[in-house]
């Protein structure tokens, strides 16, 4: 059997209408949203505006790619937002004013994130802590450490190049979108084409069977948490560049938004089923909806209500296809 046995979507060939709807439902939904948005406000569909919308969504996209890995192995990472802010604070700790510090900042951020991911993964696998509690504890600890370091005050000592990462363009394409595309493609290939990726799906669909088949279950799960944390760390740096100053709450809400987007993209919380690119589509839907609420002239709080309805609705929609 090939890797596609574990793939989330049903096999091609005789696709029924229902199957097509399940597979492309999100794309159809996104198209409908875009048409509605364009009807309400014609400038919405202009490339410039769309690129803007996507640029804002790029850091969230990076987090969602990582979150997908963790959810695939029956996990959940609540610490991503706290990690983003902590990495942002870490970046300012260099007090660097020159661009030559940027590589160092990235290395430090990635190493730090990897350690956080290692700890979460270790707690989940070796100590049998539920992912919810392990990452919740990490979230609170990181928050405490961060506030203790900054004393609660925002900081803004950043190399000027950081804002280029967030809002700069190469050949007219925003740098952070390029980064997101590279990150998603690389990790997508790892997930859907490599042995490690197959092991992730095996562990996610049936941890015991995976172990019996010689898959190093714990190592796979730990690596997923490390990947998720690194994605969140990188996302934090890009968000930092966008915001410009480090408040202690950079990225607040991203932990839940990343889960919402992944669930909308059909990543099953029960593990073993999902796809990085569909999860990114979930991000697009989320962002377009948030935009639409504003375009329609509703108060911004309406976003919360709609987000709530959508996450329950999306989960219910994907739940039905199990039967």
């Amino acid at each position: 059997m090939t890797a596609s046995t574990n793939a989330p979507v049903p096999r091609t060939r005789n696709l029924t209408t229902a199957a097509i709807f399940e597979r492309y439902g999100l794309v159809i939904f996104l198209c409908i949203l875009l048409v509605v948005a364009a009807l309400i406000s014609p400038p919405f569909l202009q490339p410039a505006n769309l690129v803007n919308v996507l640029t804002i969504a790029a850091p969230l996209g990076m987090v969602v790619v990582g979150q997908t890995f963790v959810i695939l192995v029956r996990g959940l990472d609540l610490s991503v937002a706290s990690l983003m802010a902590t990495v942002a604070v870490l970046a300012t700790a260099f007090k660097a004013t020159g661009n030559d510090a940027i590589p160092m900042i990235f290395v430090a951020a990635i190493v730090f994130s990897a350690i956080v991911g290692l700890i979460s993964g270790w707690l989940v696998t070796k100590r049998n802590v539920s992912p919810f509690l392990a990452t919740l504890a990490m979230m609170i600890i990181l928050q405490g450490v961060r506030f203790a370091y900054t004393g609660g005050a925002p900081i803004s000592t950043l190399p000027p190049g950081m804002s280029f990462l967030a809002s700069g363009r190469i050949l007219g394409i925003p740098v952070n979108l390029i980064t997101l595309a590279i990150l998603a493609t690389a990790l997508g290939i790892v997930l859907h084409r490599s042995r490690f990726g197959r092991q992730i799906f095996m562990v996610g669909s049936n941890p015991k069977a995976a172990l019996l088949n010689g898959v190093p279950r714990d190592r796979v799960v730990i690596l997923c948490y490390v990947i998720c944390s690194i994605c969140a760390g990188i996302g934090g740096l890009f968000l930092l560049g966008y915001v410009g100053t480090v408040s202690n709450w950079v990225g607040q809400g991203y932990e839940l938004d990343s889960i919402v987007a992944a669930v909308m993209g059909g990543v099953a919380l029960s593990g073993g089923r999902g796809n990085v690119f569909a999860a990114l589509l979930g991000v697009a839907v989320l962002v377009v909806i948030n935009n639409l609420v504003l375009l329609l002239g509703f108060p911004i709080e309406m976003q919360l209500i709609i987000k709530g309805i959508i996450i329950i609705g999306a989960a219910a929609f994907y739940r039905t296809r199990l039967f």
Binding site: M302, L304, I306
Partner: peptide, 9 residues
């Protein structure tokens, strides 16, 4: 989570 978001909004 969804319900919390709806109530809060």
């Amino acid at each position: 989570l969804g319900m919390g978001s709806i109530i809060f909004g």
